[in-house]
């Protein structure tokens, strides 16, 4: 089939097959810190903060950091010319459930050194907060809001920390946590009722933003979730139509 196609493709530029480049991408790592300059420097400079490191999926370097000094370390990673991670590709969270800490994950890339790094900061469940890196990378703004919305991690120093995907008054909790049921905590009737009670004209403006102010939530609903009430319970009491 391929040969038949070639006959019709006189104008095709087949392009060179570079063997060197191909080998470079398939380079495998043993996991020794000396193979990744940033990991080596991190261990040397912030040895106490680095809880571990390894190579994931063949060529991706991951380091676990304690959340206490994360901002300082990330600041250094961005501004040190030897590392210069100028691109914060992604900020997200992982919840393993079963009482394990929620991890905040940073995917960084340095355009100057063409080097990628992933940092994972385990945040204990009883103190779900970490410093915001919004002042270093503007791209972290919405990404951190999303982590706050879906995981409930508070980012200290974030200029506008409020829900981004779910409605502002969403009362069922943080959906991507493992203890959150797939169909939500309330019954469908209650969810529909609450949805239609939303004020569609509600908005907020740039002036409303208060630095570091935590987003307000329906106090009764927070209590209900904290008490471990699940699904249907609030719904049954409020089904009126």
């Amino acid at each position: 089939m391929a040969d038949e196609q070639k006959s019709g493709l006189d104008a095709v530029d087949e392009g060179p097959i570079g063997s060197d480049a191909r080998e470079a991408t398939q380079r495998t790592f043993s996991g020794d810190p000396s193979e990744h300059p940033t990991i080596a420097a991190l261990l040397e400079r912030f040895g106490d903060e680095v809880q571990g490191h390894r190579v994931a999926a063949g060529d991706q370097w991951v380091a676990w950091l304690a959340p206490t000094r994360s901002h300082e370390i990330l600041d250094w990673l961005k501004n040190d010319p030897d590392h210069a991670y100028d691109m914060m590709s992604d900020v997200t969270g992982i919840d393993y459930g079963a009482g394990r800490p929620v991890e905040v994950v940073y995917q960084m890339f340095s355009t100057a050194h063409s080097r990628a790094l992933r940092l994972r900061c385990p945040v204990p469940l009883d103190a779900m907060e970490i410093d915001s890196v919004c002042d270093l990378w503007k791209s972290a703004d919405w990404l951190e809001r999303e982590v706050f919305d879906l995981f409930g991690v508070t980012f200290k120093g974030h200029p506008d920390l409020r829900r981004i995907l779910m409605p502002d008054d969403y009362a069922e909790g943080h959906p991507l946590r493992k203890d959150f049921p797939l169909r939500g905590r309330f019954s469908r009737a209650e969810q529909t009722r609450r949805a239609l009670e939303q004020d569609v004209e509600r908005f907020y403006l740039a002036d409303d933003l208060q630095a570091g102010a935590p987003q307000e939530m329906d106090a009764s609903a927070v209590g209900a979730i904290a008490d471990g009430e699940t699904e249907a319970t609030p719904a049954q009491s409020r089904e009126d139509d």
Binding site: S89, D90, T92, I94, Y96, V105, W142, E146, L176
Partner: peptide
């Protein structure tokens, strides 16, 4: 970016995360 996290022997992801380009572009 597609970010998948798994535990040993998982047939389902522990976390499947999509790094959406237009989410960041829109911000």
């Amino acid at each position: 970016g597609m970010y998948v996290v798994a535990e040993e022997g998982d047939t389902k992801p522990v976390r499947w995360r999509v790094r959406p380009p237009s989410f960041v572009n829109l911000s």
